[in-house]
Design a protein around this nucleic acid. Structure first.
Lengths: 212, 212
DNA sequence: CGTATGATCAAACGATCGTTTAAATCGCTA
DNA sequence: TAGCGATTTAAACGATCGTTTGATCATACG
C-alpha cells in the first residue's frame, strides 16, 4: 500500500517536470518512468493510460489552485468596501504560491504551454470543472467595474489571465536581488502583478484607485 | 520550377495549420503531407527534415512581423512629441495584421506556444529574429516612461507581450458583432489592445495620458 | 505454513514515427 | 525526339511509441 502511493507519486512528480519541459506529446512514457525510477508498465497499471495520467497531473494542481482561490474570494466577495486589488489578490496569490511550490513552476509552464497550444484536454477540463470559479470572479469584477459591459470584461480577464500565466511560467526576466529575502521578493512580485492586472482591467473607466 | 514552388508552399500552408492545431510533436509528416496533397517524401526533399520545416514555418512569418514593426517604429522613434500609444501601435498593429491574415492566427498560436517553450533552439530562433527589434522598442518605451527603471520596464513588457500574444492566438478572443464591418472591428480591437497595453505599461507613474 | 492479493518486472506486441531508397515521371534544352 | 536534371512516387528502413502479457516478488490473513 505505502509502496503504491510512493510509485504513483513519483510518477506524478516526474510527469509534471517532464511534461513542462517537453510537452505532452514530446514526453515518452519510457523517459518518464526512467526519470521516476519505476517500471514502464507502472503508468498503465496505476493510471490506465497516458491520457489519464495527463488528466491526473492537471487536475491535482488545478484542484489546489481553485480551492485556494475560492477560499480567498470568500473573504471579500459581495462586501461594499471591497477593492479591485483585493479581488485580484484572491485571484493571483494562490497561483503565485503554486508557482513557488516544489514542482509548481513546472505545472505553470505546463499550463502556459497548454494554453498556447489550445490543448483540447485542458480546455475541456477547465470549462467543465472550474468554470464556476471563473464565473464567481467575473461577477465580482463586474460589480467593481460597472462601467464595463460583459464582453469587454471577459476580454480583459482573458488578457490578464494570459499575461499572468505566462509570467508565472517563468519566461519573464525579473529576478530576485541579493538584498531582499525570498519572502519579500514574492510579496513584491505579487504586488507587481496585482497592480498590472488592476491597470489593465480597470483602464478607461472611473474605477476607484487604491491607496498604493 | 513552378511545381516546386507550389509543392513547397502547400506544405508550408498545411504545416502552419496543423502545427497550430496539434503542436509540433503531435503533427506527423504523414498527416501533414496528406493534408497538403503531396507525397510524404516531399518534406525531406524540399526542407531536409521536419525540424528544418518547423524553422522555415516560423521564420517566414517572423520576418514579415519584424519588418513591419521596424517600419512602423521608424515613423515615431526618437521624436519629441511621440506618445506611448503611438509606439504601442507600431508594436501591436503589425502583429494583429498577421493574425488576420490567412493562416496568421495559426502562426500566432505557434508563437504563443514558443513563449512557453523550453526548447533552447526555438528560443534562440526567437531571440535572433526578435532581439534587436525588442531592444529598439524597449529603448523607446524607456524614453517615454522615464519613471520606470530598466528591470520594471522589461517586466511589464513581458507581461504585455504575453497578454497580446495569447490574445492574438485567438484564445477567448472578442467576437465581431454583426453591425460592424470587419475593418472597423479590426480597428476597434487594435485600440482595445493599445489601451490595455498602455494602462499596464504606464501604470503607477505620472505618464502623460492620451486624449483617448 | 500455504495461499491469495496487489505490485513490480522483463519482454514482447502491433502501430506509427521520421527518414531513406531507387525507380518513375516531369520540364526543358540541344 | 533524345537526353538530362529536377521532381515525384511507392515502398521499405530502423527506431520508438503506448500498451499488454505472464511471470515473479512482497505481504497479509486463514
Amino acid at each position: 500500500m505505502t509502496t503504491t502511493v510512493a510509485t504513483k507519486d513519483r510518477i506524478l512528480r516526474a510527469a509534471e517536470e517532464l511534461f513542462a519541459r517537453r510537452g505532452f506529446d514530446g514526453s515518452s512514457l519510457r523517459e518518464l518512468t526512467s526519470a521516476a525510477g519505476v517500471n514502464l508498465a507502472a503508468v498503465s497499471y496505476h493510471f490506465g493510460c497516458k491520457e489519464k495520467l495527463i488528466e491526473k497531473v492537471l487536475r491535482r494542481r488545478l484542484d489546489q489552485l481553485n480551492t485556494q482561490r475560492m477560499a480567498a474570494l470568500d473573504h471579500v466577495e459581495g462586501r461594499p468596501d471591497t477593492t479591485l486589488e483585493q479581488v485580484l489578490d484572491a485571484y493571483i496569490r494562490p497561483a503565485l504560491e503554486i508557482s513557488y511550490d516544489v514542482g509548481g513552476e513546472c505545472f505553470m509552464r505546463m499550463l502556459a504551454r497548454a494554453f498556447a497550444e489550445r490543448d483540447e484536454r485542458l480546455r475541456e477540463l477547465l470549462s467543465q470543472n472550474y468554470g464556476h470559479v471563473m464565473r464567481r470572479f467575473a461577477a465580482e469584477f463586474a460589480r467593481l467595474l460597472p462601467h464595463l459591459d460583459k464582453v469587454e470584461l471577459y476580454w480583459r480577464m482573458d488578457l490578464v489571465t494570459g499575461a499572468l500565466t505566462l509570467a508565472m511560467s517563468g519566461f519573464g526576466m525579473i529576478q530576485r536581488a541579493d538584498n531582499v529575502s525570498e519572502q519579500a521578493h514574492h510579496e513584491q512580485t505579487t504586488q507587481h502583478l496585482i497592480r498590472f492586472a488592476a491597470a489593465g482591467l480597470g483602464q478607461g473607466g472611473l474605477a476607484r484607485h487604491t491607496r498604493q
